[in-house]
Simulated scan of single mutants.
Amino acid sequence: MMKELKNKRQDLRKEADEHKEKRNELNTLASSLATKRNDLNKQTKELINEAQEFKKLRDENNGKVQEYKEKRDETNARANEVFAKVDELRSASNLTGPSLKEIRRDIDRLEFAQQTEVMTPSKEKEIVKKISELQSQYAEKKKQLEGNVELKELLEEAQAIREEASTFHTTLSEFAQKAQEYHDKMIATFKEADKVRADSDAAHKEFVEIQEKADEEHKSFIAIQKELRDIEKEVRKIKKQDTGVKREADMEEVRKDAEDIFDKFKSGEKLTTENLMTLQKSGLL
C-alpha cells in the first residue's frame, strides 16, 4: 500500500510540474499578446486623433471655400449688373455680335474647366485654342466699344470687378485643393486605424484563448496539488500506524524478558541494574 502511494505521489508530482510549466509558458505568451494588443490600441487611438485633426483642417478649408465662393458670386453679380448696362448701351449703339459679358462668360467657363477637369492633351489643346480665340474676340469687341466714353468707363469698371471675382475664385480653388488633400489624408488615416484596430482585435481574441488555456492548466495543477496533499495525509497515517505496531511488538518482547527476569528473581538469583531497568520498563516493578 505504501509503495503504491509513493509511486502515485511521484507520478502526480511529475504531472503537476508539467501543468505548472505549461501554465507559465501560456501566461508568458498571454502577457506578450496583451502588450501587443495594448500597443495596437494606442496606435489606433493616435491614428484616430490624427484623422480627426485632418477632418478639422478639411472643414476649416471648406469653410474658406464657402466664404470665397460667396465673395466671388457677389462680385460676379456686381459685374453682371455693369455688363447689363454695357449691353444696353451696346444695343443703342447698334453694335452687333455677342456681348462682352457673353464672351467673358465663355472664357471663364473654359478656364474653369481647364483648371478643374482631367483632360487628354488633345482636349486641353483644343480648349486653350478656343480660349485664345475668345480672348481675341473679346479684345476686338472691347476695341469697338472704346470709342464710346461711357461704354469704355463701364467696361473698365466691369473688367475690374471681374478681375476681383477671378481673384476670389483663385483663392477659392486653393482652399478647395487643400480641403481635398486633407480629406484624402483623413480617409487614408481612418482606413489605417481600421486596419490596426482589426489587428488589435485579433491579438485580443488570441490573448483570451491563450489565457483560458493557462487557466485550465492552473486548475489542473491545483487539483493535483490537492490530490498530493490527500496522499501525504494517507502516507503519514500509514507511517503512524506502522510505528504503533512496531512499538507494541517491542513492548511485548520487553514484557517477555521481564517475566523471565522476574522468575529468576523469585528463584533467588541476583538482578543486575539492566535487569531492574527491564522490569521497570515492563511495568512489573
Rank of each mutant, 00 (worst) to 15 (best):
G97Y: 08
E88W: 04
T44I: 00
K205G: 08
I48S: 01
L33I: 06
S32N: 05
L134I: 13
K141C: 05
E124I: 02
K226Y: 03
K130G: 07
E174L: 05
S166A: 11
K71S: 08
R9A: 15
S220P: 03
S173W: 08
K185Q: 15
E150G: 02
K125I: 06
E74R: 06
D230V: 15
N80R: 12
A249M: 06
T28W: 07
N80P: 02
K125R: 07
L151F: 04
R109M: 06
V196A: 02
K226W: 09
A160K: 15
E212A: 15
L26R: 07
E174Y: 00
F190H: 12
L134Q: 04
H204C: 07
A203D: 01
V118Y: 04
K219V: 03
A214P: 02
L12A: 05
H218L: 02
D106Q: 15
Q159P: 01
A16Y: 08
L12V: 05
N24W: 06
K239D: 14
G97V: 06
A179L: 12
N275Q: 10
K143N: 13
K69S: 15
I127K: 15
K237D: 13
A188I: 00
E164N: 01
E227W: 09
D230Y: 08
S166Q: 13
E274Y: 00
N94R: 07
L57T: 10
K123E: 14
L57E: 15
G268H: 04
A176D: 12
K6Y: 02
N275G: 05
E248K: 10
S99H: 08
D17W: 08
V254E: 03
Q135F: 03
V82N: 12
L29F: 05
A179N: 12
D17I: 10
I161Y: 06
K14G: 03
S166H: 09
T170K: 14
E174F: 00
P98D: 13
R255K: 13
I224Q: 13
K6C: 04
I161E: 04
V65T: 12
L145R: 07
D250C: 03
K20Q: 11
R78Q: 13
K22E: 09
K20P: 02
T170L: 03
I127S: 03
D215F: 02
L47H: 09
R236F: 00
